[in-house]
């Protein structure tokens, strides 16, 4: 192999390397926005799954005698969706969003007040022997 051939091959190799590097950069560029978009979603998903596990263990700890109050309480706290309704009503100037937001706030409020009150009524009835 002459020095000329070696130089040629080296040049060809470096060209291919440059091409590959360019392709890799292009790929990274196309993936980047997806990854950037996926990042916050993955964070939320992590929190969601962790909360599922917490819920699983906490709810198995609930005594079966209190399963009705459990439904009342979970019903009340699921109305935390009111937060989304408040944001829509307060942060947007759109009439549609304000209308839907108001309706959602009202329905959720029925649930919040009703759910906690009826749970409180139920729990107040559970008494120990002799009390």
């Amino acid at each position: 192999m002459t020095p000329q051939q070696i130089a040629n091959e080296a040049a060809a190799l470096s060209d291919r390397a440059a091409l590959l590097a360019n392709q890799a950069r292009q790929m990274a560029e196309t993936v980047a926005p997806v990854a950037a978009a996926a990042e916050p979603f993955l964070l939320l998903l992590t929190i969601f799954l962790m909360a599922c596990f917490v819920g699983y263990y906490v709810v198995w700890g609930v005594t079966p005698a209190l399963h009705s109050p459990l439904m009342g309480l979970t019903n009340a706290i699921s109305s935390v969706i009111v937060v989304g309704a408040i944001l829509a009503t307060g942060l947007s100037d759109s009439i549609a969003a304000k209308t839907f937001g108001f309706l959602a706030v009202t329905l959720a409020a029925v649930n919040i007040a009703g759910g906690f009150m009826v749970t409180r009524r139920m729990l107040a009835m559970f008494k120990k022997k002799g009390s």
């Binding site: 969601f48 819920g55 709810v59 706290i77």
Partner: peptide
Amino acid sequence: NLLLIVTGALVGASGAIL
């Protein structure tokens, strides 16, 4: 919204267990 996600998961798990 994290609060909605956490609470939704708690309630969802609870109903599923019941």
